[in-house]
C-alpha cells in the first residue's frame, strides 16, 4: 500500500517539474511585462498540437520536437507582444486581462475546430519502459520529461543571471522608466520576454505530451493550473514556481490514488486556499 503512494508521489513530482516549467513561463511574462497571460494554457495546447503534427509528419520524438516548437512559440510570443499586447501595456489591468481572455477564447475554439473534440497523443516506443529501484517503479518518459524540464529551467535561470540581455530584461522589470532612460529598447525586450515565456511553454507542452493526452478544451484548466502554481510558489519567484509545480504534481498524484483521479484538481484548489490563508505571499514570495 505505501509502495503505491510512494510511486504515485515520485511520479507526481516528476510531472510536477513539467508543470513548474509551464508556470515559469507565466511568471517570467508577468514579472517583466506586467501583463497577465490569460491565454497561457491555450498557447501551450497549441504547442502540443504542433508537436503532434511534427510527430505525424516527420516521426519526430516530442523531446526532439522541443527545439523547433520552442523556437516557433518564441516567434509567436514575440509577435503577439509587439503586434497586440504592447499597445495595452499602459492600459488598466482588467482591459489587458480581457484582451488575453479574448485571445484565449479564440485559440481554444480554433483548436477545437481544427483538431476536433477527441483526445490525441503521441506514442513513443519507450512509452511503456520503466526503471525499477527496489519497490519504486518510475516510467522512463517521466524521468526524461523531468530532466528536460530541469534543464530548460536551468538554462532560463542562467540566461537571466549571466547574459547581458537577461540582465537588461531584469532591469526593465525593476524600473520601466529607468530602463527607457538608459536607452534600453523596452519594446524589443518586452517582446523577447514574452517570446521566452512562450518558448518555456512550448517546451513544457512537448514534455507534457509524453505524459498526457491533449484535448482542444483543456486550455483553460492549464491556465488556471499555471496561475495557481505561481500564486502558491510566490509571485515573482522563479524557484518558487518550480517548487510549487512539484508540490502540485505530488498532490494531484496522491489525490488520484487516494480518491478519484477526476477529483485531483480539488486538491490543487485546496492547496491554493491553504496557501492564501496561511502564507498569502506564497511559499518563496516576499511579504509585500
Amino acid at each position: 500500500m505505501s509502495d503505491l503512494y510512494l510511486n504515485a508521489a515520485v511520479g507526481g513530482a516528476l510531472t510536477g517539474l513539467v508543470y513548474g516549467l509551464m508556470a515559469l513561463g507565466l511568471s517570467v511574462i508577468f514579472g517583466v511585462v506586467r501583463v497577465v497571460n490569460f491565454a497561457h494554457g491555450e498557447m501551450m495546447t497549441g504547442a502540443m498540437y504542433g508537436a503532434i503534427l511534427l510527430a505525424q509528419a516527420f516521426k519526430l520524438d516530442p523531446l526532439v520536437a522541443m527545439a523547433p516548437i520552442a523556437i516557433g512559440m518564441f516567434l509567436l510570443g514575440y509577435g503577439l507582444q509587439r503586434g497586440l499586447v504592447n499597445s495595452f501595456v499602459q492600459r488598466p489591468e482588467h482591459t489587458q486581462f480581457m484582451l488575453m481572455v479574448a485571445v484565449a477564447i479564440i485559440l481554444t475554439n480554433s483548436q477545437l475546430i481544427a483538431f476536433g473534440p477527441n483526445a490525441r497523443n503521441v506514442q513513443v516506443d519507450y512509452a511503456l519502459d520503466s526503471y525499477q529501484f527496489g519497490a519504486l517503479i518510475i516510467d522512463k518518459v517521466r524521468i526524461f520529461a523531468a530532466i528536460a524540464a530541469l534543464a530548460v529551467s536551468g538554462a532560463l535561470f542562467a540566461f537571466f543571471r549571466f547574459t547581458l540581455t537577461g540582465r537588461a530584461i531584469r532591469a526593465c522589470a525593476d524600473n520601466y522608466l529607468g530602463a527607457q532612460v538608459v536607452g534600453l529598447n523596452v519594446k524589443h525586450l518586452y517582446g523577447l520576454t514574452f517570446g521566452i515565456g512562450a518558448a518555456c511553454l512550448g517546451a513544457a507542452g512537448c514534455l507534457l505530451l509524453l505524459l498526457l493526452d491533449v484535448t482542444p478544451l483543456q486550455g483553460p484548466s492549464y491556465t488556471l493550473l499555471a496561475f495557481i502554481i505561481v500564486i502558491v510558489g510566490g509571485m515573482g519567484s522563479l524557484t518558487g514556481a518550480l517548487l510549487s509545480g512539484l508540490l502540485v504534481g505530488v498532490s494531484e498524484a496522491l489525490a488520484g490514488v487516494a480518491f478519484d483521479p477526476s477529483a485531483k484538481s480539488m486538491f490543487t484548489f485546496a492547496l491554493l486556499i491553504l496557501v492564501l490563508l496561511f502564507r498569502p505571499q506564497g511559499l518563496l514570495g516576499r511579504r509585500p
Binding site: 482591459t95 480581457m98 484582451l99 481572455v101 479574448a102 485571445v103 484565449a104 477564447i105 479564440i106 481554444t108 475554439n109 480554433s110 477545437l112 475546430i113 473534440p117 482542444p216
Partner: peptide, 17 residues
C-alpha cells in the same frame, strides 16, 4: 462545427477591447 460561436464571441470581445 462546434466552437464557431465561441470564436465569434472571442473576436467580438477582441474588437471591443
Amino acid at each position: 462545427v462546434p466552437g464557431v460561436k465561441q470564436v465569434f464571441y472571442g473576436i467580438c470581445l477582441l474588437l471591443v477591447v
